[in-house]
Amino acid sequence: MPQMAPMWWCTLEISFIVSLIIMMTNIFFNLNIKIKSNQKIKKKEIKWMW
């Protein structure tokens, strides 16, 4: 029950929220890196064509 051990539930909640934030930031940065790498590849292809 939450009334018996509030610190346990607080730590669980905080750890869950922190893990979610870390996962979201990882996904965001991975997507940014993929988009940048695709743009660099396209620019390189255009340079090679010229």
Rank of each mutant, 00 (worst) to 15 (best):
Q3F: 07
L20E: 02
F28G: 07
K36E: 01
K43W: 06
M7P: 01
I17Y: 08
T11C: 14
I17M: 12
C10D: 03
F28H: 13
T11V: 13
I41C: 02
E45Q: 14
W50Q: 03
W48S: 01
I27D: 07
W8H: 10
N30W: 00
K34P: 01
Q39S: 05
M49L: 13
K43D: 09
I22Y: 04
I41N: 05
C10A: 15
K42M: 05
A5I: 03
S37M: 07
L20H: 03
L31N: 11
F29A: 03
M24A: 11
S15P: 00
P2Y: 11
I35S: 10
S37V: 03
N30F: 02
M49R: 11
T11G: 02
I17C: 02
K36N: 10
E45C: 06
M7C: 04
I35M: 10
I14A: 15
M24N: 02
S15I: 05
W8M: 10
L12W: 01
N32W: 09
I33W: 06
N30H: 06
N32C: 14
A5G: 01
E13I: 07
E13W: 08
K43T: 10
M7V: 01
N30V: 02
F29L: 14
S37A: 08
E45M: 11
I22G: 01
I33Q: 09
I35T: 10
M23H: 02
C10S: 12
M49C: 00
Q39A: 10
M4H: 11
Q3C: 06
E13M: 12
I17N: 05
E45F: 00
M1W: 06
K43A: 14
I17S: 05
T11I: 09
I22N: 03
S19K: 13
W50F: 09
K43V: 06
I46V: 08
